[in-house]
Computed example of a mutant assay.
Amino acid sequence: MKDLNDLYKSFEIGIRSTKATKPQEYLKSIGLDYTDLRIGFNSGQFHHREKQEVKDHYQSLGLLTPSDAAVRTDEMTAYTVFGRYGLVFPLMNRENVVVNYFALRFELATPTEHYLNRLGLYPSYPNQNTKRLFIVPTVMDAASLLQSKALDHREAVLALYDGKLLPQHEKAIAALSDLEEIIIIKR
């Protein structure tokens, strides 16, 4: 069964689909390039045509929540899908494995942002040789800074979790033995 890392690969393929014109256009409108950054698209259909065992697995990961929505037969269960029809950004653990998703549901009247859980860092744990670290309030701010190509090889960026510094941020920062400067960017 797919874990978050494996499923994310399918989201990265999904953003490249010829049918994914709306997410591609949205990214272009905000100045982000899915060919340059790790950005996926969740159409909300990853569980379709899967056995119940797989759906249960996705439910245990927090990706599916049973819903009361009407379905064709009593034998089927409707689900609410995490980040349905949204852009998905991966949060990584220290081993560079996807352990969390940040989803931006851009098609809603008011775009909404959600995290799947409280694990991992975006875009990843900083390289051990980082000298200057930029800390930004959101995943979107970090993606914009990465897209700008303004960072040199000894600089890194970390997105706060919903504007908050979590223990994993503190541990990652404390592990940077060459760190000389932290720059906090506020909105």
Rank of each mutant, 00 (worst) to 15 (best):
M1K: 15
M1I: 12
K2P: 08
K2C: 12
D3K: 12
L4N: 02
L4M: 07
K9G: 13
F11Y: 09
K22G: 04
S29P: 06
S29V: 07
I30E: 13
D33N: 14
D33S: 14
Y34V: 05
T35R: 13
I39C: 07
G40V: 05
S43I: 03
H47V: 08
H48R: 15
R49Y: 13
R49A: 14
R49W: 06
E50P: 04
E50Y: 13
Q52K: 12
E53T: 11
V54S: 15
D56E: 07
D56A: 13
H57W: 07
D68V: 10
A69V: 14
A69M: 09
A70W: 14
A70P: 13
R72I: 14
R72K: 11
T80S: 14
L87R: 03
V88Q: 04
V88W: 01
P90E: 08
N96H: 07
V97H: 08
V97A: 09
V98Y: 02
A103V: 04
L104T: 06
R105M: 06
E107V: 09
T110S: 11
E113S: 07
R118G: 11
L119G: 03
G120W: 00
N127H: 11
N129K: 14
T130P: 01
K131H: 11
I135G: 01
I135A: 03
T138N: 12
V139R: 00
V139Y: 01
M140C: 07
K149S: 02
A150M: 00
A150H: 00
H153N: 11
R154P: 00
V157R: 00
A159T: 01
L160A: 05
P167H: 09
A175G: 06
L179D: 07
I184T: 12
